[in-house]
Structures are given as C-alpha cells and as structure tokens.
C-alpha cells in the first residue's frame, strides 16, 4: 500500500483557482462552500508603496494536511474519521454524528460540514473518485497549469514527490503540534 502525500511548489501559484474549481467538480462541493475543502490563501503584500516586498506576494494554496498523527481522527467519538490503507485521513459519513469535535481539533481549519450528507467532510486526496480506480492523481493536481502540486507515494523512493522532497528544502505547517502533516511547502 502507498503512503500518499503532496508537495506544493507554492511560489509558482498564480491564484487562477483552477484547483478549487476542479475539486468542486470532482467532489460535488455545494455552491457557497468556497474555501472549505481546498483553498488558495492570498496574503497581503508586505511593505508600503513603493517599497513593497515582492517575496511576500506569493499565494498559499492549502487543504487538509493529511496528518500522520491527525488530531481530528483522535477525537472522533465513533471512529467515523479513519486512516485508510494509503494513509489518507478519510470520513465514513455513515458513522459521523456531526458533533463537530473534529472541527475543533483540526489545527488547519480543514474540516467543513457537507450539507448534502449533514456530516463533517474533508479532502481525501480524491480517494473516492481516482485512487479507488487505480489512478494516482488528484483533481487539483491534475488541473494545475503551473504544476504547483506534486502528488505521489512518499514510501516509493523513486516517486516524483520523494525525489523533490530530497532535492529541495521544504516546510510543513504547525509541525510543533506533532501532527506530522503530509503536505509539504517547497521553498
């Protein structure tokens, strides 16, 4: 079994929002649920005109960090949130009681209520639509015009993501919480 992760070459992001659109189409995200399952953060440029910092103008695409030690999974009272064989943190809507404890526990604000099933949902690396069919892409990654996203098996030393994480410096978000995220921001 694989152990999927994603590297984000975020400085290449042009904020075209193709990833958000593709995710919505792929996973049937309802209108109005913008920035819920996947989003692109738009930081304000630092400095005062004309002394603006170009370095601060990059966009910040993000989504569920697919933690190896996910707080949302740990707090779930009915085990509706679980790790699948690929290490992807997923939700079984049949078991979710909508207590929203996972929304409190997630340090990345990656959980949202899906009004179709009235359960708390999250990014699952397109497990239901792609990985289950043997594909090894996600909708957001496949559609990105500037190839910000590199998706693959972290346990395979020859995968593109393993190689890029060996070659380039990267960081993850809020690692001090011990969550062990599998989203890596390439610097």
């Amino acid at each position: 079994m694989a152990r999927y992760g994603m590297a984000l070459d975020y400085k290449s992001c042009i904020n075209c929002k193709a990833c958000e659109s593709a995710c919505k189409e792929e996973n049937g995200i309802l209108l109005g649920a913008d920035k819920h399952r996947i989003w692109v953060g738009v930081p304000e440029m630092e400095g005062i005109f004309p002394n603006l910092s170009i370095g601060s103008s990059s966009y910040a695409p993000s989504q569920c960090q697919q933690c190896d030690n996910a707080p949302c999974q740990e707090v779930c009272p009915t085990n509706a949130t679980y790790y699948d064989d690929n290490g992807v943190v997923r939700v079984n809507p049949e078991q979710c009681i909508l207590c929203t404890y996972c929304m409190q526990a997630c340090p990345y604000d990656a959980r949202y209520i899906d009004d179709r099933t009235m359960t708390v949902d999250k990014c699952n690396f397109c497990s239901d639509t792609r990985l289950i069919n043997g594909e090894t892409t996600t909708a957001c990654q496949a559609t990105c015009p500037t190839k910000v996203r590199i998706f693959g098996d972290l346990d395979d030393p020859n995968s593109e993501i393993s190689q890029v994480l060996r070659d380039r410096e990267h960081y993850s978000l809020k690692t001090h919480l011990g969550t062990k995220p599998k989203l890596y921001y390439l610097t």
């Binding site: 740990e74 707090v75 779930c76 009272p77 009915t78 085990n79 509706a80 078991q95 979710c96 009681i97 909508l98 207590c99 929203t100 404890y101 009235m118 359960t119």
Partner: peptide, 25 residues
C-alpha cells in the same frame, strides 16, 4: 448533535476510545 440516534448506535459499535467525547458521553 447532528445525529443523536446514530451517536447511540456507533458509540457502541465503533467506540472511539481516544475521544474525550466518547468517554464523557
């Protein structure tokens, strides 16, 4: 709680023993 009946069922069938809510309830 969005699904209180489901809560009673899965509290027993698939208990989340690391969850404070499970223990509390």
């Amino acid at each position: 709680i969005g699904h209180p009946v489901r809560m009673v069922i899965y509290n027993i069938l698939t208990p989340g023993l690391t969850s404070a809510i499970w223990w509390m309830g």
